[in-house]
Nucleic acid binder design. Structure first.
Lengths: 201, 201
DNA sequence: ACGATTGTTGCATGCTCTGCAAGCTTTCTC
DNA sequence: GAGAAAGCTTGCAGAGCATGCAACAATCGT
């Protein structure tokens, strides 16, 4: 990884951190792009080279989407063969390969608090699930051998992402929180769905 | 209904219609608030007395939320006693008491087309479900006798709204489309959920 | 070390959105 | 009905967001 690339990710980080900190301190509306840029020691114009808007600086890389090999494995019926179990595996795949867990968790906590305080951000976060939802629908359809436009894959994907979102909202991103705990919560949530909408009520 | 109030709703309508038409014609980015206002024969400043942004003019009154008496009836276990059936009743309640169905459907079709063309609007629409979701979670918890913060009511509400959203996306808002058809589609979608996550797979 | 590539910055500009105060229209009251 | 009260519309001023462009600076490839 060259110097150039390292500098870029550093600037990106600095801008995100500055934005989060200032927003938490003074509220979204009372912080200008210029102030964020100043805090990160770049020009205001540079801010817009990294993020298209203030909101982007907070939500930029959310939600994390499962990457190609994981999706591929799910689509072809793996890894366990059990639908719900494999869905959980796919949805939590990003939780394991995060190298810098500490700063990651810190930022997640800040984002969470900010989103609870600023409804505009909560809606924005919510809206971003749309893209991922479509991808998940596609792999579910593939796994089931359905045509890509089949309604049930979209419905189930939408519900799965809803569960994921709801569960993430309840996470605290603390040190003690293990991936296994998250999986258990998802399992329980999916079971709730089964009980509410399944044949046995 | 006095003259003043009639004029207000007329202006609101005019602005919405003007916005939708111009956006469809030229795309969201290529229409200014001034143009919309001119088309509706009011000043640009007046536009902002009605809508906080261009996006609001398109999505302003979406999604429609079930009103108090309907929520109340659902919360207390009615009207049929069957959870899924009553959920469907609640979620489709707004479809019946729409007096001016024609212009309503027309606008819905325009919105739908616009949202398919402008991803920004689709995300915004998606994000707006958040508010309704919280209300639905509250009445589900009440119906089940759960404490208001119980996780399963949020999970189930999230899934229910996801199903609703997904189903609305598939509607065509044509004359022939009856409320009964919509209910049937919702029923099928909830059944898909039950099959995917229920005990029998 | 040299040119090519990529990133940063200032400048100009258009548009969004808000607050404010003046003027107009509708409503209320007698 | 006339006059006061309430509510809307409008123009104006101004802060801030966001983008294109061109010059300049830093890195990279060889």
């Amino acid at each position: 990884m060259g110097l150039r690339e390292r500098k870029k990710t550093a600037t990106r980080r600095a801008l995100q951190e500055a934005a989060l900190e200032l927003f938490l301190e003074r509220g979204l509306e009372n912080v200008t792009v210029e102030e964020i840029a100043a805090e990160a020691d770049v020009s205001a114009r540079t801010f817009f080279n990294y993020f298209a808007s203030k909101e982007e600086a907070v939500l930029g890389d959310l939600p994390v989407r499962p990457d190609e090999p994981v999706r591929q494995e799910f689509a072809s019926g793996g890894p366990s063969g059990d639908f719900v179990e494999d869905l959980i595996t796919m949805l939590t795949s990003f939780l394991v390969n995060t190298e810098d867990l500490v700063s990651h968790r810190r930022r997640m906590r800040m984002r969470k608090e900010l989103m609870e305080r600023e409804p505009q951000l909560a809606r924005g976060f919510f809206g971003r699930f749309h893209t991922v939802e479509l991808e998940v629908a596609a792999v579910i359809a593939e796994r089931w051998g359905d045509p890509p436009e089949e309604n049930r894959s979209f419905v189930v994907a939408a519900a799965a992402m809803a569960v994921m979102r709801q569960t993430m909202k309840r996470l605290h991103f603390e040190e003690g929180e293990q991936v296994a705990d998250v999986r258990a919560k998802l399992r329980e949530a999916f079971q709730n769905l089964g009980e509410a909408f399944g044949p046995v009520r």
